[in-house]
């Protein structure tokens, strides 16, 4: 099989599960409603797996990227993906305070900060490339 996916495809597949979390969250009046916490907890687990997996894909793609622009694009998209989940969870973590939601919020925030840090790092590297640097200090890659 020769089909391959790019990061946009991965995000496109992942985003509906984030939106589904919003839908499930809104479909119950509160977490005490029959079945609410069970349904929401199940979705929380799915979203956790998706965010962790998507981050792993981002890391693999960043390592293989041809240039710093490509690396920065991967981390920027990963950060925005996390942000979209955090935006939904910001309200739901209060409504579903005992269904694993605050923990998921914290986890995704950690992953977003990790993506942001890598994005910032690569942007600094891009700026440094234009600066003068003493010859002979670093080993040369041939």
């Amino acid at each position: 099989m020769k089909a391959c996916l790019n990061f946009s495809d991965i995000l496109e597949v992942s985003q509906p599960q984030i939106n589904e979390m919003q839908r499930i969250g809104n479909s119950y009046p509160d977490a005490a409603a029959p079945g609410a916490c069970e349904a929401f907890t199940r979705q929380v687990r799915l979203v956790e797996g998706i965010v962790v997996q998507t981050y792993g894909v981002a890391a693999a793609l960043a390592k293989k990227a041809d240039d710093l622009d490509e690396v920065s694009d991967v981390w920027n998209r990963m950060s925005r993906f996390c942000q979209s989940a955090l935006r939904i969870l910001a309200d739901l973590k209060h409504k579903y305070a005992y269904c694993g939601t605050p923990q998921l919020y914290d986890l995704i925030l950690d992953y977003k900060l990790a993506a942001d840090k890598r994005y910032k790092g690569v942007m600094e590297e891009a700026t440094c490339q234009k600066m003068e640097f003493p010859k002979g200090l670093l080993p040369k890659l041939n």
Binding site: V52, Y55, A59, A60, A62, K63, L107, Y111, A114, R118
Partner: peptide, 11 residues
């Protein structure tokens, strides 16, 4: 660098 920058689990 490899072990943290490209870690699948950054935390």
């Amino acid at each position: 660098f490899d072990k943290f920058e490209f870690a699948f689990d950054p935390i």
